[in-house]
């Protein structure tokens, strides 16, 4: 099922979408270009919040809340801790990015990548409509399929987290002075 531009423009959901997507994009650009490191990280929060909002809009409530919880609740804190510990300069005009000679080709690369993906997507999906879900995806249904089909990755996921935790601690921890060595 495809929809025309006039259909699109008249659908209220699309305006909601734009209202979410544009700030998200703007924040994303800020993440990669802000001259203040904390601002960049906070822009990331906005971006992620934007995606979470989109998820909810699409009825993926569980995922949306997970994003909020995990990212905004935990990951961002990690980032901030990282910034603090590494004593990144918090001033506004800090030297956070590579010079233009690196940025220009990188931008070019990114644009081409976007073009390639975008072209492919447009070519494949055209104006196919996304059916708005009648009801939000229930947590129960997600849990059910996850534990029928994806038990193994779920279990493995726990090992990933455990490994990241244990390994991260071991790596990041200040080594005890010499006397610990017995």
């Amino acid at each position: 099922m495809t929809i025309t531009f006039s259909d699109w423009i008249t659908e209220i959901a699309n305006w909601v979408f734009l209202a979410i997507a544009l700030p998200t994009l703007g924040a994303a650009i800020l993440v990669v270009s802000a001259k203040n490191i904390v601002r960049a990280v906070l822009a990331l929060v906005v971006t992620l919040a934007g995606t979470a909002a989109l998820f909810m809009m699409l009825g993926a409530e569980f995922v949306g809340w997970t994003v909020v919880l995990v990212y905004i609740g935990a990951v961002i804190i990690l980032f901030l801790i990282g910034i603090m510990i590494t004593r990144a300069p918090l001033t506004k005009n800090a030297d956070l990015s590579q010079p233009m000679s690196m940025r220009a080709p990188a931008a070019l690369l990114s644009i081409i990548l976007f073009a390639v993906i975008g072209w492919a997507v447009v070519a494949s999906f055209g104006a196919a409509a996304i059916p708005l879900p009648d009801e939000a995806t229930t947590t129960a249904s997600i849990g059910e399929t996850m534990f029928t089909n994806w038990v193994i990755p779920f279990e493995v996921m726990s090992f990933v987290l455990l490994a990241a935790l244990v390994g991260g601690i071991a790596l990041a921890r200040q080594d005890a002075p010499e006397e610990e060595e017995a």
Binding site: Q98, P99, S101, M102, P105, A106, L109
Partner: peptide
């Protein structure tokens, strides 16, 4: 001197 971001060169 300014352009020795090796990892990023690799990535690029």
């Amino acid at each position: 001197k300014a352009l020795t971001g090796r990892v990023q060169q690799y990535a690029a």
